[in-house]
Amino acid sequence: MTAISILDLVRVTENTDARVALDNARDLAAYAEKWGYRRFWVAEHHNMPGIASAATSVVIGHIAAGSKTIRVGAGGIMLPNHAPLIIAEQFGTLARLFPGRIDLGLGRAPGTDPLTVRALRRQPAAADTFPQDVVELQSYFAPAQAGQRIQAVPAAGTNVPLWILGSSTYGAYLAAELGLPYAFASHFAPEQLLSALEIYRSHFKPSQQLDRPYAMVGVNVVAAETDREAKRLATTQQMSFANLARGARQLSQPPIDDIETYWSPREKAQATSMLARSVVGSPETVRAGLKALIDETAADELMIVSDIYDHALRLRSFEIIADTQNADARRQLCPET
């Protein structure tokens, strides 16, 4: 059975503020664990007024404190923005506060624009040492050794599980080499999904953390009672991607009736390409779309984004998604039903 999880963008909308966005994320996580989702991740983005998860480890603590069993983590931390020691201290602290519930996904992109990269004091060549930084970070979570001069307190011995995130084949090779689980960002960069998964699985080397490949696939899903309503709700995300093409960083916008009135042909082409793996529709449409994706990719887990403006409708979308997947799981266990 393919597990389902949530990547939450912690969206600030035109009628909310950052505090409401953070509390909505916490509220969604509490519902998600009741609906059977395995994980709830947030991501590091900087200088984006519409996303409130820049201080990612702090946000994870807020969300984890409002839930009981669901795993909470980063999808991801952009490691070249930070010293591995600092990230180990932060996530080791989270692991002590919420034992057995913290994940740490790692990416090598800056997660922002070039000007903000300078403000972060990120060195231009920081991404070149990403593999070594991952190994260094991993060592800080291992039990402390006698005579060890540098320890990440209180991270030592927590063994926080690491994930490699990717939107190209680079991460697939690295995850395979290090024997780590791999999450592909097909919710915004779907082009190399299948080739990256093939590379990861064919080159995988077992490790202390993982004995066989484990692949997560990102997917945008907007679910509603009808296909028509879901397509309307999906215009919020379509406008966000059109805004990216314009170089505009705006708050999340309410859905509109006709997306063609909003974007130019160039913006439509770019957004459509980035959102090509989206599943939008009624419960039956969503069930069929996710089944097709699972059949095509053999994903061990789906990381689902449901970028909907209204919080209540977003909750309903995730509830529908969970219902469709739970029903499929029951059918697999009891085919006669």
Rank of each mutant, 00 (worst) to 15 (best):
T129D: 14
I308C: 04
V305L: 11
E191V: 08
L85T: 09
H46P: 02
P255T: 06
M1A: 13
A32L: 06
P154V: 04
S202W: 00
P161K: 03
L104R: 01
R26N: 04
A230I: 09
N326D: 08
A146V: 13
R266L: 05
H82T: 13
L315C: 14
T16Y: 11
S5R: 02
T112F: 11
T2Y: 05
R11M: 11
D307P: 02
I259R: 02
A54D: 12
R249Q: 14
F98T: 01
E136V: 07
S317E: 07
S278H: 04
E229H: 06
R71A: 12
D323Q: 15
R246G: 01
L165M: 12
L22Q: 09
G36D: 06
L94Y: 08
S240K: 05
L115R: 12
A3E: 12
A18P: 03
M1G: 15
M48W: 00
R38Q: 11
V222I: 15
V160T: 05
V134I: 13
S186R: 01
I4N: 02
Q90L: 09
T16V: 05
R11D: 08
F98G: 06
L194D: 14
D8C: 07
A125W: 10
P190N: 12
Y214R: 13
N47L: 02
N47C: 04
Y140E: 05
G247F: 08
G157D: 12
Y214N: 07
A242T: 01
K291H: 14
A64N: 08
S207W: 07
I164A: 08
A156F: 15
A21K: 07
R212Q: 15
A74V: 13
L79R: 11
V117K: 04
T337K: 07
T158Q: 13
E229K: 10
Y31M: 11
Q145K: 15
R212T: 12
D23Y: 10
I259H: 03
V153R: 08
A83G: 14
Q270T: 00
A152W: 05
A29G: 11
Q209H: 01
G166I: 03
Y309W: 14
R277Q: 11
L251P: 05
N24R: 14
A83L: 12
L193W: 05
E177G: 02
L165H: 11
A3M: 03
E136W: 04
A329W: 08
K291R: 15
P255N: 03
R314C: 03
S186I: 00
C334T: 14
D258H: 02
G289F: 10
T324V: 15
Q325F: 04
P283N: 03
P190T: 07
A43E: 02
R228E: 15
D128G: 00
L275K: 07
A175S: 10
Q192L: 09
I259W: 06
A298L: 12
P114G: 10
R232A: 04
